[in-house]
Write a protein that binds this DNA or RNA. Sequence first.
DNA 1: GTCTATCAAATTGCGTGCGATTTAATCGTA
DNA 2: TACGATTAAATCGCACGCAATTTGATAGAC
Lengths: 143, 143
Amino acid sequence: MPHPPRLDEQVCFPLYAASRLVIRLYQPLLEPLGLTYPQYLVMMLLWEDASLTVSQIGQRIYLDSSTLTPLLKKLEDKALIVRKRRPGDERVVEVSLTKTGKALGLEAIHIPERLFARIGFPPKEALQLRSSLKRLIARLEMT
Amino acid sequence: MPHPPRLDEQVCFPLYAASRLVIRLYQPLLEPLGLTYPQYLVMMLLWEDASLTVSQIGQRIYLDSSTLTPLLKKLEDKALIVRKRRPGDERVVEVSLTKTGKALGLEAIHIPERLFARIGFPPKEALQLRSSLKRLIARLEMT
DNA sequence: GTCTATCAAATTGCGTGCGATTTAATCGTA
DNA sequence: TACGATTAAATCGCACGCAATTTGATAGAC
């Protein structure tokens, strides 16, 4: 019996809902650092690699310059990063951590465990969920 | 050895990334119906229950009136729904399907399977992912 | 060397999300 | 039956996301 799509039967909706609900939980943890969740993602990349181009950041978190440019400007206003055109290829903008931005990484160290404690999801299932999501993302990247 | 949070180790990021990537895949399927993804979610609810209040919709998809009001007005502009204050309690707004809106449900019947085909994710793993996400959402709802 | 194609960011316009506040209606209780 | 509390939507301000276009710089073909 064919019928119009039902919310309960979808896979995408729980993805969308869970994503937004978890980001809401992050909020009170990120607020003391003065970061939004997408800003936090960019900072995480830079805490690992202190300098990246806009494109490299975009490839890692699946955002393009139309989203990143304003976001990066906000991080620059907060003095967490600097943006500099690459000498020798002025098309490329290099984003790098400032001392303040690097220091913020230390303040963020306990965020993941605090978030995890709040959710109270079984660690085993969390790991399995993550690996399942990563396989899904790998498939989505192909298309 | 404590270190700043790393993107690879997070559970939330794959959630956020997968959600956005899947929504992107929906786009070309929804475009012929003239719907965005969140609008599609609302329509799915109404295809099941032809009349719901703004609050009821919000509870089901975790959005509040500040997001829903403008979205519902757009659906009304497209003549897919009507919004009417409830006689007897003027605080409540009843959202109901128009004939056009109901008819659109038939055009949407094959969207889920077409999307699923595009992703090419093993059905077994998809079901397991969905149930895991639903458990996660249940935990998130408690807080 | 010039001219076109390509490339990286930036810009623009629109649709969410969401915290915070406002508006209007109803409820509860003295 | 007043009147403060509560409730449901709406409004406002700000920060994403993303399609489409623009801007400016470099690369390639001739």
